[in-house]
Design a binder for these strands. Structure first.
Lengths: 195, 195
DNA sequence: CTCTGGGTAGAGCGTTCGTTCTAGTGAGAG
DNA sequence: CTCTCACTAGAACGAACGCTCTACCCAGAG
């Protein structure tokens, strides 16, 4: 299973970006981590650092979406599924030593003032994750407007709880937020809607 | 109303940090924005960039806490108070052109890997904000454990929703999350607890 | 007046940044 | 064999980084 140079660059960049942000990560560092040379990086990404970052963010966003999808599909009950997302995030965060958080937040916040393509990629990622949660809720019989509002809240809260967990080096914010989100989801169910 | 050089440095650094993060902000840029010189900066902060950043983060965290306190005290109903926090954050975010978000998140995420004092300052800020919300809930008669879990969730969700609002350049994530958090808080009240 | 010291001012240090550039490698086409 | 071209390799450039350093200003003490 040999990986292509381009793939190694994207994966390494993705990891470094989520740990140190956009400005904090150097092109040379990415090349070194990916066991590639500067020439290779600029060969595959003529757009330079920004192009590498965009590809890396899209890769990280896809990984995050896969994690989300798997956790959501793992439980029929939507409330339990949301809590499972939080637990899974907490588990991976702890395993990485609290370093590998959301692959988008760090890079997004640094490039807000600029009109970079990076923030577009980040906005797309957030929209995508929200859609995953919304569709799960729709499949469970939630009305469209409730599903949309809940999905926005769930993604925002998980995002924020992950940051809190990283800063505090503790799983607690994620686990607590997962429990409360499950409760919030159930507060719609008890009003009766689905079989 | 002349401000001292030291104060101008802290205020300028705080603003720049929340917009561009720690690595993205240069000492010389801080000095220029504060109408001070490099010599003055190193005179007041012999600890260099990190010392300036810590003072700036503590300043920003205090400002954020004041906003939170005011919004929480503005309404007796805890659910409405939480929603008011979200509305106030949304309002200030829009006014700043989506740039002036949480004064802690950006700097915190960049320095997670390091053992910098910066992340301690960020952790302190988060704890402080959580305490504000928890005390409000306690004053409203919530049991201690419920108040603690709700406070963690509220702060995390607001934090995440603010990032989502910045990235999407829209107030919606904050307003929606505020509404849902209010619903969550009310879901405790209807089980009956306080007068 | 001189002297002192908190504060201002900015040139310059070594380093690292993102990027460009030229040279070289090696598998496949003719 | 030669030729081609996707790819590798890394030296070198100007700019910006955090920081140090010396020189200077000027109000108040003696």
């Amino acid at each position: 299973m040999q990986s292509s140079t381009r793939d190694r660059i994207v994966v390494a960049a993705s990891r470094l970006l989520q740990r140190q942000g956009y400005v904090g990560t150097g092109i040379k560092q990415i090349a070194q981590e990916a066991r590639a040379t500067l020439g290779s990086v600029y060969h595959f990404f003529p757009g330079g650092k920004e192009a590498v970052a965009i590809a890396a963010i899209e890769h990280g966003a896809g990984e995050f979406a896969a994690l989300l999808r798997e956790a959501l599909d793992g439980d029929d009950d939507p409330a339990e599924a949301v809590a499972a997302c939080a637990r899974q995030l907490a588990h991976e965060l702890r395993e990485s030593g609290w370093t590998d958080g959301c692959p988008v937040t760090a890079a997004a916040l640094e490039t807000l003032g600029t009109d970079s393509e990076i923030q577009r990629a980040c906005a797309d990622a957030l929209r995508d994750w929200e859609r995953l949660v919304r569709d799960k809720l729709l499949r469970c019989g939630f009305p469209a407007s409730d599903a949309r509002e809940l999905a926005t809240t769930v993604v925002s809260a998980l995002e924020g709880a992950e940051v809190a967990a990283q800063v505090g080096r503790s799983e607690e914010p994620l686990l607590v937020t997962g429990r409360q989100l499950a409760r919030l989801v159930r507060s719609y169910e008890i009003q009766g809607l689905s079989p």
